[in-house]
Amino acid sequence: MSAGSRPGSRGPGPALDGALALIAVLLIVQMWLLTAALESDLAGHHEVVWPAAIISAVIFAACGGLYLFVEGLDREAGRPR
């Protein structure tokens, strides 16, 4: 019996929900960052595009980290892949 279906155990479901919500929020920030960087670049403010790219990379790393965290929980719980 997997940990996810064990009586009294909530399994990795809530962790996935939390990670999903965080990823969604980070993605909204990243979308805003992309549009702001494009807007600034087209307006001639080229100094902001590299910091925007670096912050976008950090956000992607955070999203990837959250996803890997959920994958790790799945492996522990023996969830279907």
Binding site: L16, A19, Q30, L34, A52, S56, I59, Y67, D74
Partner: peptide
Amino acid sequence: RRQFSKFLVLTSLGMLVGNVMIA
């Protein structure tokens, strides 16, 4: 839900690629 979160992470990668392309 896990597949959806994977899709969101791939979308995040797309945003990163877009930002890097602009830079």
